[in-house]
């Protein structure tokens, strides 16, 4: 671009144009989320040999659905947040504002971090914030079963990429160029899951729709002993929501496709984000 500048007015116009185009770039980063179609079918959920709450391994049938290829980014969430801010006075904190982490410069303050790190997964959001964003996009959070199927597919992969312990993920132990910090989404293409979703191990934990119960697999699979449990949505009540995938502060073991973690839904931490899901239309199944 050849920019010439003859007077103050044109200088002003150029600056305005630049700011506008930066704005456009920023918005372009927040384009529609890329979704992956996970076809309908039965898969094996859980593991017999790891944590007790992963037992028993059991068959689950899921209708076709879409899952976000990436975790929701700062830029994407920023669009939603801007709408929440509309009409607010400057001293009003908009609903669903992410938490600030001033002690973690790689995350920092909201909304500045949306501009500084547009491609980083959004963190510091509660389960309610994540669910509200998903609803705003006309989507929802994945169920625990949907999350696990998207990560391991029809295989028994320990990690989304398979069984090899080399970390294709942003974890606490890996020397991956992102030590002690969050990585932009999609930084580990070799870590893609069976269906091609990225960062399903490490980077940030991901909220799922389900309440946590350590024995949900046991009693839901009993009920479905003769046929796979169909589209399970987790326990009816609970205190904690399930998180999946592990994060930048976790060991690789905690980033397996079956590892289950949980937090109070209104907590906003620097290691939890989310990805979107959507039920597929019948014609897409």
């Amino acid at each position: 671009m050849n920019i010439s500048c003859r007077n103050k007015n044109s200088r002003f116009r150029i600056v305005c144009t630049l700011i506008f185009s930066l704005g456009l770039c920023f918005d372009a980063l927040a384009a529609e989320p890329e979704l992956i179609l996970v076809p309908a079918g039965t898969f094996t959920m859980g593991s017999e040999r790891r944590a007790a709450d992963e037992r028993p391994m059991h068959k689950v049938y899921l209708d076709a659905y879409y899952i976000g290829k990436y975790e929701v980014t700062n830029a994407e969430y920023h669009e939603f947040w801007k709408i929440q801010s509309e009409g607010n006075t400057p001293d009003q904190i908009p609903q669903h504002t992410p938490e600030n982490f001033l002690h973690l410069p790689h995350i920092g303050e909201w909304p500045a971090r949306a501009e500084r790190f547009p491609n980083h997964p959004v963190v510091g959001i509660s389960w309610h914030d994540a669910a509200a964003y998903a609803a705003w996009k006309g989507m929802r959070l994945p169920t625990e079963a949907e999350w696990e199927k998207a990560a391991r597919g029809y295989t028994n992969r320990i990690w989304p990429w398979g069984g090899a312990m080399e970390a294709h993920a942003n974890t606490a132990e890996a020397k991956d160029g992102y030590e002690n910090r969050i990585a932009p989404v999609g930084s580990f293409p070799k870590g893609k899951s069976y269906y091609g979703a990225l960062d399903m191990a490490g980077n940030v934990w991901e909220w799922t729709a389900d309440w946590y119960s350590d024995v949900y697999y046991a009693y839901s699979s009993q009920a479905a002993a003769k046929r796979p449990k169909k589209n399970p949505t987790g326990p009816v009540v609970g205190s904690w929501r399930v998180l999946r995938g592990g994060s930048w502060i976790d060991t690789l073991t905690r980033c397996s496709t079956t590892f289950r973690f949980y937090l109070y839904p209104n907590l906003k931490t620097a290691f939890v984000g989310f990805r979107l899901a959507k039920t597929a239309e019948k014609s897409e199944k």
Partner: peptide
């Protein structure tokens, strides 16, 4: 944004957030 972070003395709330985060990391 980076300057504003560095220049701001941590408020009580940001100290609170820091302690909670550290608490979780240490628990893990």
């Amino acid at each position: 944004p980076a300057l504003s972070i560095a220049d701001t003395a941590p408020s009580d709330h940001s100290k609170y957030v820091q302690h909670v985060e550290q608490g979780f990391v240490l628990t893990f």
